[in-house]
Design a protein around this nucleic acid. Structure first.
Lengths: 210, 210
DNA sequence: CCTATCTTTGACCAAATGGTTAAACTGTTT
DNA sequence: AAACAGTTTAACCATTTGGTCAAAGATAGG
């Protein structure tokens, strides 16, 4: 028997909730709007998810997992450190490109309700930089790269990848005369720009080794 | 006659509104909370500022002006380009340090209500990168710095300065094991880190000139 | 002291909002 | 077709929230 994967109600709700929560935030989101977006009665939201908070929790978990886990996996393969970092940057920008509003959503919600389940989600996400740290320290010892602080490095990478997306409305206005197409081109060129900048910052310069 | 600069009601309201709006956002902020914060009756909010939106507008204007205008002024003095950029980074991080929640507040509100008065505030803020662009292009022609795209450069600078503040809750958890003091130290070291990274990225390398 | 204006307050209002409930509907089992 | 469980809906509720209003306080001028 063929199981038709027609979107069932629960999925419809979750998808609608993702859309509304991510764009409007937990404060700005309205249960009625989520119901409308899903094309169902508002009571059904409470039938499947007991409260707004529970529904929000489901959305947040989903959003955070999308950005947290698979990233450090890149550092498990066998290529050299420069290739690893470059491919990390490329794939991270790709992910954001596909979900440009999620980073700001996450930052916001973590800032607002740092306590409670949000903190727990982060801890349980398995996101940690141990592999990254080990790798960087190893390469420094080997003399492949400069003596850099791995924490500064990871923040630099994240900043350069994420900021153009979350700051888009302002940057586009101030720096690009509000031209959307131009900004899309700009975003496309970011993978190379960020890769070059980061690689350049860890590459040994003449006379700096030892 | 001595004019005692005792905070009058209107100022009390604006200051309370700044605090509440900036930390909770326009959606999360409550008029009652602002009144409580100011220690006055809620009706007074409407007496001095006609509506929540008007009050919010006053706060947003203030916040945006604090971050927009004086920054490009640095590029008017006579020092060399490296010094200019370095001092820009230093003073920008100083400003954010004094108002760590304003950047996220601005990004949020611009993202939410890009239209309307928010867009107007940005345009009327006098914030533009013409001076910066001219300066960079001049130095490239002179051969003082690499051939860089001035828009990539300014976005890089802003990203590296701003992101550690708006992403603090997450970064602190994931990268610093939720240690606040350690994160404060990290922020202090950012001025040098960002300056070095940016200067390094525009400095000519052997054999790259012409 | 009286009046006029500005400031402040508490009581109140209408709309919005998250949530509940009982009834209707649908599909499956016997 | 009757009974049952799962699903969906409309009507309703309590609370919150931005906002109004008339009256009370304060302040200054005549």
């Amino acid at each position: 028997m063929i199981k038709i994967d027609k979107e069932n109600t629960e999925e419809k709700i979750l998808n609608a909730a993702k859309k509304v929560f991510v764009t409007k935030g937990s404060d700005g989101a309205r249960m009625q709007e989520i119901a409308d977006e899903a094309g169902i009665n508002k009571s059904l939201l409470h039938y499947y998810y007991r409260s707004k908070e529970k529904l929000f929790a489901a959305v947040f978990k989903f959003a955070f997992k999308k950005f947290a886990p698979n990233l450090m996996g890149i550092f498990e393969n066998e290529s050299d450190i420069f290739t690893k970092i470059t491919s990390f940057i490329h794939s991270y920008i790709d992910i954001i490109n596909k979900n440009p509003f999620i980073p700001l959503f996450i930052i916001n919600e973590v800032s607002k309700k740092n306590a409670g389940f949000v903190g727990a989600v982060i801890k349980n996400s398995g996101m940690n930089i141990d592999l990254f740290e080990k790798e960087i320290k190893k390469e420094i010892k080997k003399g492949t790269i400069k003596q850099v602080d791995h924490r500064q490095l990871i923040v630099n990478i994240l900043a350069l990848c994420v900021f153009p997306f979350i700051g888009r409305p302002i940057i586009q206005k101030v720096v690009f005369e509000d031209n959307e197409n131009q900004y899309d081109d700009f975003l496309k060129s970011r993978k190379e720009e960020v890769s070059n900048l980061i690689i350049n910052s860890i590459t040994l310069t003449e006379g700096s080794d030892k």
